[in-house]
Design a binder for these strands. Structure first.
Lengths: 348, 348
DNA sequence: TTGAAAGCGCTAACAA
DNA sequence: TTGTTAGCGCTTTCAA
């Protein structure tokens, strides 16, 4: 099936003008008589002329589109982030092309190449859990393709980055649990390669050590698929619950892992927070509706998407090569509810 | 910043061949000597040549991309549907360009035009809650742009459609509540224009009438923004709770409306299901973690996305104009949990 | 003030 | 077996 839009040539033919005249008239060039201009504009309006952006892209070597590489759309954090991306991109006249890696390195590579070859003007990237080698980005980046990382960033590539203060978030969550009297706090987190994982782990660790609690490696469980696979979480949980010194609280990283852990806990007939307290990184919009209400660390997802997009567009539209890069660190939002035990508010 | 990819011309120059020879060699044309072929292929590999898809699109009048128009990504139903769309599109070599209408008619129009002018090969559409006039689609459709509607469809446009069995879903939900002894069942639903709204309303109505209960218009509340605005739901709820014959149960349509209603109920200190029972259309993945566990109608979101995409690609790739269209109706999934009162399972 | 022509990267009909 | 050329829709020199 074909869809035949009106071209500048059609207009020219209909009006007995050359394509260049039509082109100029359309863009309001000063050298065209207002009469011709009017004629062209009216006719264009009448036949609902739309410039072919593909032709424009070919000519101008830009596509006015931004490629987004995330692991999964159907995830609160990313869908909110994409919302933020879209909100900026839309206003600046860019299209957003989204691709999902599903936490697979290979798929990420394919997607990136695909996007690059489709001539996106820039890339907004959050790495997959399997990615440790980032050479598929290095090549493009060195060739001058603007890239901005968000959330799951690589420190091998020097460019703008937008992250949350994961260290502080995990630190605060852990301290909160310690203050509530928990001593054996476990950490269920995402793939070990990821920057977010490292940052959160550091925060968790620091909180323990600063409060005179030991850091025990057995209390840290990595879910390489970020909780996309249920068994992964169940395995981690079972494992943790079979340690002689059973953990009495969890800090869970990521939406999927948080809800997955809760489900697994529930299936094991354990009570939250009585048997196990929990603070979760989660961008769910219904923490209040959960039982128990969930103490959460909320990532500034929407804002991260916005900021990343602004930075990316800044590179794209910069006249001269950008050499100064920044890493924006946004604050998370910690909300104490019932799942984390007897907080001051809950004590009475 | 510019990103200068290798072109066929560069290869030709480097190898002392014409562009057409290079082009043919690259695509393995039989008329090129295997020697030249090898030479070209090796060099192309070496310099990491990637054909420029924009040039290709311009030439072939197709972009290998599919435009998606939904109201909101950050919504379980749509993010799951997009997941389904992507899963098919990816395998068939299509890109997915997503745009959000945010339930605004105007924005939908702009997005559609934007996508069309970017030469998407086809459109996957779920209408905004404000859309009653679909002429922005009619024009394109008449000009031959393949369009497939899913979920929120228009019956003014004859094309493939993919919907859930909303009538049956609402019917079953209502009957379930009736069987559990509820007599004053209200229906909080989305914008009145939408096909899903109408279908669900019919199912709700039929269930009441067939079971000897009156249909009371006051018991039906429309949320034009699909629950995106909290006040909308709170208003509907307050309104319902001030009817002399207060409703004792709700059937809520849509993810946002369901969780919004629950939140509002909770804020009013009402208990579910004791004060008010609830069955909700919801694609949440944590119905079990909610308090009470949520009786849900789950939309076959992923499958709907998949089927819609398959149908769309079928039109796109069809050699001759497609004139036979079908409407696929997929089944929803009804899971009884605690929010809907004393179901047989919960009675003991 | 307007038109002719070149060129963006690629393919394909036509020549050689 | 390879090269020349035209053309996809548009902008933009250069000429008129």
């Amino acid at each position: 099936m074909k869809y035949e839009p009106v071209t500048i040539k059609d207009i020219g033919k209909a009006l007995g003008l050359s394509t260049s005249t039509v082109s100029r008239a359309l863009r309001g060039s000063y050298e065209i008589s207002s009469e011709t201009k009017k004629q062209v504009l009216e006719y264009a309006e009448k036949v609902n002329y739309r410039p072919n952006p593909i032709a424009l892209s070919l000519k101008e070597r830009r596509s006015s589109s931004i490629g987004v590489v995330v692991c999964e759309i159907a995830n609160n954090f990313f869908s909110q982030a994409i919302n933020g991306i879209e909100s900026i991109a839309y206003n600046r006249g860019y299209h957003v092309i989204i691709s999902q890696s599903h936490e697979s390195y290979e798929r990420e590579v394919v997607n990136v190449q695909h996007l690059a070859s489709r001539s996106v003007d820039g890339l907004l990237v959050s790495l997959s859990g399997e990615t440790s080698d980032v050479s598929h980005f290095t090549h493009l980046h060195e060739k001058g393709l603007p890239i901005v990382f968000f959330d799951r960033v690589s420190n091998e590539i020097i460019t703008h980055k937008v992250i949350a203060d994961n260290y502080k978030a995990a630190y605060d969550a852990t301290v909160h649990l310690i203050n509530n009297g928990y001593k054996n706090i476990a950490h269920i987190t995402s793939a070990p390669f990821l920057s977010i994982t490292k940052e959160r782990l550091e925060g968790y660790k620091a909180a323990l050590l600063e409060n005179g609690l030991p850091f025990n490696e057995k209390y840290v469980k990595f879910c390489s698929h970020g909780g996309m696979i249920v068994e992964e979480i169940e395995g981690a949980l079972n494992n943790l619950l079979h340690i002689k010194q059973k953990p009495d609280a969890f800090v869970t990283a990521g939406d999927r892992i948080t809800t997955g852990s809760l489900t697994a806990i529930k299936n094991l007939q354990l009570k939250v927070p009585e048997d196990i307290a929990l603070v979760g990184f989660s961008n769910t919009n219904i923490p209040e509706l959960m039982a128990p209400t969930l103490t959460t660390i909320r990532m500034p997802a929407f804002e991260m998407g916005q900021v990343a997009t602004e930075l990316l567009i800044r590179i794209i539209e910069s006249k001269r090569p950008v050499t100064e890069f920044e890493t924006r660190v946004l604050q998370t939002e910690f909300t104490i509810r019932n799942s984390s035990g007897l907080s001051p508010e809950n004590k009475k």
